[in-house]
């Protein structure tokens, strides 16, 4: 029962402990990659549920206003939606390639693929911008008079359209910001072939963003 039982504590770094000698600073040196990934999965789960609330609304109103949903969905541009789907799918692939490259220690290749992923995200946003602008020019936006004159179901449909694609695009942007950080960290070596959990988690996040779009696309553009 001695006070200096730090050695029996199973941690190599004695200086990291506050016992016995109160002049030592506490540095936490716990690392658990599996734990980090586990936490990330939980987080993604909450994201799914966040959209889940909106999907519930979508279905609730779809049942209430089938005809209006049909009419409104006809007005969305399938081509734009399809292009964006392709863009996002490709970016998911390049994200994986970037992680693989990093693990193989080819930093340059990894950075290249990460860049491509970032650009895909940007393309998605630009595309979305034009799509929204087109709608807004036609007077279809929440609170507009043109929209208010339409049947109730269409108002709701477009309301949800703006909300859900908007929230999704927000996630795309967050994903892009994360990529910028990853890019910097790879350059500085904070993320490297030994410690790539951050990039991996960023990848998981990006796949989720992709996955949500895979649901949004048919629900709004294809299902008439």
């Amino acid at each position: 029962m001695s006070t200096t039982s730090v050695d029996s504590h199973g941690h190599g770094n004695n200086a990291a402990h506050g016992y016995g000698d109160n002049s030592q600073l506490y540095v936490h040196v716990h690392r658990d990659d599996y734990g980090s990934k586990f936490g990330m999965w939980l987080f993604l789960f909450t994201e799914v549920l966040l959209f889940g609330g909106l999907f519930i609304l979508y279905y609730g109103y779809r049942i209430a206003y089938p005809q209006d949903y049909h009419n409104a969905a006809m007005e969305l541009n399938i081509v734009m939606g399809a292009v964006n789907t392709l863009v996002l799918l490709t970016s998911s692939l390049t994200m994986v390639l970037s992680i693989v490259a990093l693990r193989r220690k080819s930093i340059k290749v990894s950075l290249f693929y990460l860049g491509i992923t970032f650009l895909s995200g940007a393309t998605f946003c630009v595309n979305k911008y034009f799509e929204w602008m087109g709608k807004i020019h036609h007077g279809i936006y929440p609170g507009s008079e043109d929209l208010a004159a339409r049947p109730a179901g269409e108002i709701v449909f477009f309301g949800l359209y703006y909300l859900m694609t908007g929230l999704h695009t927000f996630h795309v942007i967050v994903g892009m910001v994360i990529m910028v950080f990853c890019y910097i960290f790879i350059k500085t070596g904070t993320i490297n072939s030994d410690k790539y959990i951050v990039l991996e988690n960023a990848g998981l996040y990006w796949h989720l963003v992709d996955l949500i779009w895979i649901f949004l696309f048919p629900l709004f553009y294809l299902l008439h």
Partner: peptide, 10 residues
């Protein structure tokens, strides 16, 4: 005024 909850907007 998205009209998601407002009964006057459906």
């Amino acid at each position: 005024k998205f009209g998601i909850f407002d009964p006057t907007l459906g």
